[in-house]
């Protein structure tokens, strides 16, 4: 499979402050990859380098075979960008803005079709500034995909959504037929949407893989508790066996608790940040 995004050793500093400390990242055609990490981990900065909005301090970056810093109009026409909290063009009508953005591309979706597909057809003549948060976000996605991009960047797409809006949005993203690189600080969102997840912590890649690989790689210690004590261990089964031998039979009040993926992820962040 060919790589749509290829990043090697990406570094980025603002003055003395190092935001990205050598990131490797690959996105292959057709897959959805999530950049997962806490706020300030460098997710958005990484995306902005890939979008050509920022120049990296060091490293190799290729997006659709082109260095984003040199991306021309033909290259721009092949990518779609949905940034965080957009509130631009508040006085424009929804369909006028979508039509105007569509006209920048050689082979755009028809705006009516797209508004239908995103459940916005009832809002076609509404002003952009009067949409609800969820509607606005769906419009942002419509504006991002209207040019039929080969690659779509989604930055924190569901921040501030209620659970229902979030689920609807996830269905929408899963229905998109394109390569997607998204950022999120929500593990559940990354698990639901992404084929592969790359966890960023403080500007470096802590771990990367499929959700299942991730779960195995990041598993935090399990907690084994019994009447005589409590212990954290990576191998709870072995500890239980040892306890049984020690007691010569059933262990009183034995309790083994494996961490959830969420707990493992949070513990990974703590460990990586330390």
């Amino acid at each position: 499979m060919d790589a749509v995004v290829n990043v090697r050793g990406l570094r980025m500093s603002y003055g003395p402050h190092e935001v990205l400390r050598g990131i490797d990242l690959e996105v292959r055609r057709g897959e959805t990859v999530a950049l997962l990490g806490p706020n300030g981990a460098g997710k958005t900065t990484t995306l902005e380098v890939l979008e050509g909005f920022r120049l990296p301090s060091a490293g190799e970056v290729e997006v659709l075979g082109v260095d984003p810093a040199r991306g021309d109009d033909a290259w721009r026409a092949r990518i779609g960008v949905v940034l965080q909290n957009w509130r631009d063009h508040p006085r424009w009508q929804v369909e006028k803005l979508l039509g105007h953005v569509a006209a920048h591309y050689p082979n755009p979706w028809r705006t009516g079709e797209l508004l239908d597909a995103l459940g916005l057809s009832g809002k076609a003549t509404a002003k952009v500034g009067q949409l609800s948060g969820g509607q606005r976000r769906r419009l942002d996605v419509a504006l991002g995909v209207v040019g039929r991009p080969e690659l779509l960047f989604l930055d924190e797409p569901t921040t501030g959504f209620d659970p229902e809006a979030r689920r609807e949005f996830h269905d929408l993203v899963r229905g998109l037929d394109t390569t997607i690189l998204l950022t999120t600080h929500d593990l559940a969102e990354a698990e639901r949407l992404a084929d592969r997840i790359t966890v960023l912590v403080e500007g470096h890649v802590a771990v990367s893989g499929t959700p299942a690989e991730l779960a195995a790689a990041v598993r935090a210690p399990s907690r084994v508790r019994w009447r005589g004590g409590c212990e954290l261990t990576d191998d709870p089964s072995r500890l239980a066996w040892e306890l049984h031998q020690r007691y010569g039979g059933p262990v009183p009040d034995l309790e083994i608790r494996r961490p959830t993926l969420e707990e493992s992820y949070l513990s990974l962040i703590d460990r990586s940040a330390a």
């Binding site: 909005f53 026409a77 940034l83 631009d88 953005v101 920048h104």
Partner: peptide, 17 residues
């Protein structure tokens, strides 16, 4: 105002923006 609202950035993300 266009800059503050993000219209400039949106146009920059478009071909010929």
């Amino acid at each position: 105002a266009d800059r503050e609202e993000g219209a400039l950035l949106r146009l920059r993300a478009l071909p010929r923006g």
